[in-house]
Design a protein around this nucleic acid. Structure first.
Lengths: 141, 141
DNA sequence: GTTCATGCAAATCGTTTGCACAATG
DNA sequence: CATTGTGCAAACGATTTGCATGAAC
């Protein structure tokens, strides 16, 4: 996961600064391609490789986030009913949760926005039993 | 999106049936590679291409689901505070929502499972204003 | 016998990386 | 001058697709 794009100290980069500025001034949650399309207007010789490199540095610095599940692979689910998932941050295991789907969340967003919401997904992140061996033991009766 | 893997009527396929059965009997939300690894024990000449083809047919039939955001691209966000997202199912626009992050959801899962939950993500799906031109108009004052 | 399912290999697509050179400290 | 940033092109890994063959209707 940690590819150490820049293992020492960073140097100022006009391109990286501009990427961060672009991302901070847009609300559209763009793709790397969108960032490139904007950037190339100002830096005609820009390469996609550099956009990705700088995006990864910004991610590592915690200045931006990726909207994803943290998995490179598609994960499949034969349980087609509405339910939530727990994702272990250590072993990447995904587990179905038993807590009931809450339609009132959809209604809340519906009432406060102009969106027509019809469903939602929730993923909880943390550590599963195996990956937190010394915690939450007292929960067992 | 719709690639019409099978635009006419489906024919029974032992392999597809077995994939569905495998997915229904596991709770691990596996990857296509895992499915292939199991399947190849029973079908020694199996190809990955066929696994993907059948997975896509099952997805189209609604018999299984993919655990993702519905986007092939990574989407970036410079708002690093905890917040929820709305995803338009028509135009794929992603919008930050203003409803506050609810830590009690984490506590609820913590109280009812052996997982050590520390955060969660919620995505709401539906249609944005532009994609539902004739609905929810009365919300405007 | 027309259409679908399959194996195989090649293609595709988003992303990453190796290399040579320019720029910074 | 040692190290970082960059452009370029090649590599990568997950997924898709074209083609020839075999099976189902």
């Amino acid at each position: 996961m940690d590819k150490s794009y820049s293992n020492g100290k960073l140097r100022p980069s006009k391109q990286r600064d501009r990427i961060l500025e672009l991302l901070r001034h847009t609300g559209i949650h763009p793709t790397a391609q969108w960032v490139y399309d904007q950037m190339v207007k100002e830096f005609p010789h820009l390469s996609m490789g550099n956009v990705y490199r700088n995006i990864n540095i910004l991610l590592k610095q915690g200045l931006i986030k990726k909207i994803d599940f943290g998995s490179t692979f598609d994960r499949l689910d034969a349980n087609t009913s509405r339910h939530y998932h727990f994702v272990c941050e250590t072993c990447s295991a995904i587990t179905d949760l038993q807590i009931p789907y809450d339609p009132s969340l959809d209604q809340r967003v519906n009432a406060n926005t102009h969106f027509a919401v019809n469903r939602h997904k929730i993923q909880f992140y943390g550590h599963c039993e195996k990956c937190v061996p010394n915690t939450k033991k007292e929960k067992d009766p």
